[in-house]
Design a protein around this nucleic acid. Structure first.
Lengths: 153, 153
DNA sequence: TTCAATTAGCACCAAATTGATACGGTTTTT
DNA sequence: AAAAACCGTATCAATTTGGTGCTAATTGAA
């Protein structure tokens, strides 16, 4: 489906937190603050670190910080870090060239749509997102810790 | 994940076919032509008809045709017809207002991203897609009938 | 008027993906 | 040493997706 996964949803919240409170914060702290599932938060932070978006400090008093200015990180970077190379349809990647591309009547135009989505996300730097985000969350969230309550369909 | 479902992928192929060969075509015919799974094609055509994008004629010699000029049908219409109202995250729809929107630091900016995606898809009329599509497929496709071969990840 | 073609509307199932958890290992500070 | 914290990986349940099947209603044609 055409939807952000929870990982991306959560990931943007975590980046927002790290941007507005630029002190090294541990996974446990952040999870507690936003009442998000702790192991998920840990996994997401690990992936963002692996992708070079965050830097980590190990050991006691360790934690995570932004590795770059948020103006240098695009939405596409975050998506790539958390769910792999963006691909609107399976036949967009070079290694997995669709063997029917010559026959498929919509191959070329769908590639064009793919590129437009990718360009949009690549130009959309997360400082735009984080800048508009509320600085931080004074009240700890209530019982359920899910920022996207209210299932669609 | 941020990806077109097969339904949308197939749906665009079917629309392309109905545009370039504007005679009423049956689900079986189209499925056979593009070597797509027949029941899937039938379901997709039914959904597109229900959404008013196609018109159907029942009975022998029946089939489907485009209901409108492709310049009047947007990518958003097709997505909505085949996988319901577009929603980048769960808390975008009015009925399902996220009860934590006041607390969630990224609620507002993510809504903005959602609207940008929706606007893009609403302005993207499918005549742009179908116009660039190859008129039709002279060779019947080989054995496997999947236009998106080559799985990503 | 009967028959075959075809859409309509379900209900169903299996495979893939996602959301979430667990655990043992390594690094660093105190 | 011990505690805090990250790292890697493996696992598991729930959801979604891709795909199928069946029965009824409709229509054109033999």
């Amino acid at each position: 489906m055409l939807k952000f996964s929870k990982k991306i949803d959560y990931g943007l919240i975590l980046l927002s937190k790290l941007h507005h409170e630029p002190v090294s914060a541990s996974a446990r702290e952040i999870a507690a603050r936003y009442r998000l599932p702790a192991p998920m938060v840990a996994n997401i932070l690990k992936q963002l670190t692996g992708a070079g978006i965050l830097v980590s400090t190990r050991g006691a008093q360790g934690g995570y910080e932004l590795a770059h200015d948020p103006a240098d990180i695009s939405l596409a970077d975050v998506v790539r870090a958390l769910e792999g190379e963006f691909s609107l349809v399976d036949c967009t990647t070079a290694e997995n060239t669709c063997q029917y591309s010559e026959l498929c009547p919509t191959h070329d135009p769908i590639q064009a749509v793919h590129r437009k989505f990718l360009d949009f996300m690549s130009e959309y730097k997360i400082d735009e997102i984080l800048g508009a985000a509320k600085p931080f969350n004074t009240h700890p969230a209530p019982s359920l810790g899910n920022p996207s309550i209210g299932k669609t369909q």
